[in-house]
Lab assay of single mutants.
Amino acid sequence: IGSLMYASIFGNVSAIIQRLYSGTARYHTQMLRVREFIRFHQIPNPLRQRLEEYFQHAWSYTNGIDMNAVLKGFPECLQADICLHLNRSLLQHCKPFRGATKGCLRALAMKFKTTHAPPGDTLVHAGDLLTALYFISRGSIEILRGDVVVAILGKNDIFGEPLNLYARPGKSNGDVRALTYCDLHKIHRDDLLEVLDMYPEFSDHFWSSLEITFNLRDTNMIPGSPGSTELEGGFSRQRKRKLSFRRRTDKDTEQPGEVSALGPGRAGAGPSSRGRPGGPWGESPSSGPSSPESSEDEGPGRSSSPLRLVPFSSPRPPGEPPGGEPLMEDCEKSSDTCNPLSGAFSGVSNIFSFWGDSRGRQYQELPRCPAPTPSLLNIPLSSPGRRPRGDVESRLDALQRQLNRLETRLSADMATVLQLLQRQMTLVPPAYSAVTTPGPGPTSTSPLLPVSPLPTLTLDSLSQVSQFMACEELPPGAPELPQEGPTRRLSLPGQLGALTSQPLHRHGSDPG
């Protein structure tokens, strides 16, 4: 009997000691992992102490058991019943959930998450997105703005933001810190809205009876308010094209079509300037034949640059190039080494500058006005007194259609001029006259002087055409309008007829 009692007592005591040691061994194993994590990542002392304290409290609170892992091991129907039991206190005593059906309560219970916070733990920081609604079931918390405590909340209090009033989550206007050990039930806004969409009859009752104890939403960050730039940057990543407008005076608003859609830094370009900076079609017209890549860069430059609305530039004389043409100036200075066709295309550029300027006046029909002061630039669209967005969009579309028509007509005119030049060069190729044979009589004449090349004649003739079109064909006081194609086609051969009437002889060394 004594040996039996000794064996039973010894066996029970050893089993008890073994169970104690097993729990202690698990605790030390998990604690060792936490300390190894702290050492590996070199976490500083204040945060390291918070980690160790939280682990110790969580171990004593749950005995080292992962409740979520245990809950996920059950089937979904059983999980709903378990969640309904775990959140029964909240669902029974909170006013917004009263009167809900059994199915609605089960769906809500599945969406709730339980959070346990030790003292000093910050649940929400200032500036964080308010993605959830919090219900306090135990403990107390404090809300701070800077170093000032603005509120202390306790059991059955609710904090967050009214989700039904805002389409997008706002930002917190303060820090939420736990004063004691707290148990909180939180539900994400997407989950709550999903359940309320499934039960629309409960939705009206819920929003009407929901009383948020403390609204954390920062009202200064609401979209459309003066301080909402940061919020707009976070939620409006896919922005449309940006529009900046110059201020319109009362006198300017009476004149229709007073602005032109141009790229940034293009205030001095012609009315047909689009795409790359520098001139019509993204580059100076005089350098068009020598740089074919300008047409390839036109599309990307047009689509990537934001639109700006600026006044037209001052008018340019008909014979003056659009500006920024070092290529043609070098050719004029060193005409001995340049291609003979460069002079002809220089005359073509003069005609283009004249036609572009006159067509700009035809479509816009307003006098040039000086540029406004820099303080009046970049007025935002949302400022008071601005035109409605639809009106601005319609004006932009009208300007775009005008620019497209202008570009089409300029292309047709350019093709006409090039065809005339090619026809003239085919009839009378460039050549130098040879020395004529002296006559049989004693009164022999001296050799004839060489005839100037055709490109120079073409430049003079085209300059005469531009001056003739600019000065004589337009009646005084009438708006400057571009001439039609047949009129220009008839004027060019008439001007060139006198020049080509002389018999030109080919030089023996000319390969053409």
Rank of each mutant, 00 (worst) to 15 (best):
S313A: 13
H507I: 11
Q362N: 06
F354E: 07
I379V: 10
S304L: 11
I143F: 01
F345D: 09
L130F: 01
S346N: 08
T443Y: 10
S452T: 08
D252Q: 07
L262C: 10
P271G: 09
G512T: 07
T458E: 12
S382I: 13
G360W: 15
P479L: 11
D460V: 04
V465T: 12
F312H: 04
R248Y: 12
Y432D: 08
D252K: 08
H185G: 06
A431D: 07
A269R: 09
S444H: 10
P455S: 09
L243Q: 15
S137G: 10
A412W: 12
A344Q: 12
S353V: 02
M328F: 04
R274F: 06
L418N: 01
K242R: 09
D157E: 03
E480V: 10
I141L: 10
I152F: 03
A178H: 01
T443M: 06
G170T: 01
E473R: 12
C471M: 11
Y432H: 08
K333T: 07
V428L: 07
Q424E: 06
L403I: 11
S334T: 04
F159P: 01
E194I: 04
G233T: 11
V149I: 12
S203P: 01
G282S: 05
Q422R: 08
G174K: 04
L406V: 15
R168M: 04
Q495T: 11
Y134S: 03
L457D: 11
I143D: 01
A269T: 08
P493N: 08
P388F: 13
V392K: 05
V465F: 15
S291V: 11
L504M: 15
D330K: 08
E365Y: 04
G233D: 10
D297C: 06
V195G: 02
F245P: 12
P292A: 12
D357L: 11
T426F: 11
P289C: 13
E325L: 13
P380K: 10
T458I: 10
C182V: 09
E320L: 04
T337F: 11
Y181N: 08
Y181H: 15
E211S: 07
A261N: 11
P162T: 04
E201H: 04
K240Q: 10
L396R: 05
P450K: 09
I136L: 06
K242P: 10
L179P: 01
L196N: 01
E473S: 11
S334Q: 10
N404A: 04
S314A: 11
T426H: 06
P482C: 10
D204K: 08
L418Q: 04
P289L: 05
D336P: 10
L454D: 13
M221A: 08
P326S: 13
C471V: 10
A431V: 12
S353A: 08
G234Q: 09
T249N: 11
L163G: 08
Q402D: 05
P326C: 12
T249C: 10
C182Q: 03
P292R: 14
Q495E: 05
S287P: 11
V150S: 03
S353G: 09
T408M: 04
V148G: 08
L341F: 04
S509E: 12
D190W: 08
R401Y: 12
G497E: 09
A371Q: 10
G508L: 11
P318Y: 06
G174D: 03
P256Q: 10
G299M: 13
Q400M: 04
R302S: 10
P317V: 08
S375H: 04
H507L: 03
M198Q: 10
G288H: 04
G439I: 07
Y166S: 10
D204V: 13
R395H: 08
R237N: 07
R401I: 15
T408D: 09
P384Q: 14
L449S: 08
Q502S: 12
Q255D: 10
E472K: 04
A398N: 10
T408H: 09
L462K: 13
F352Q: 13
S273N: 03
Q464R: 10
R308N: 01
L376A: 12
E329G: 06
R266A: 13
P374M: 10
S433T: 11
A398V: 08
Q400E: 04
Q424T: 06
Y432R: 15
L474Q: 07
Q238S: 11
R246W: 07
E325V: 14
S353Q: 11
R395S: 12
G160T: 02
D175Y: 07
F235W: 10
N156G: 08
D510S: 11
F312W: 08
T337V: 09
L184K: 01
I158G: 02
H505E: 06
L454Q: 07
I143A: 02
S225L: 12
G282N: 12
L231R: 11
L459W: 13
Q362V: 11
V465D: 14
S304F: 06
G360N: 14
R386T: 12
G127Y: 01
D252A: 10
S272A: 10
T500C: 15
P370A: 08
A434L: 11
A434K: 07
F245C: 11
E211R: 06
G477Q: 13
S244M: 13
S244P: 08
S290Q: 15
T131N: 12
E407G: 10
R138A: 10
S272P: 14
E320H: 15
P285S: 08
V451L: 09
G227M: 10
R389T: 03
G160R: 02
S335K: 15
L192N: 01
R266C: 12
M414I: 13
P511N: 06
Q467G: 12
C182R: 02
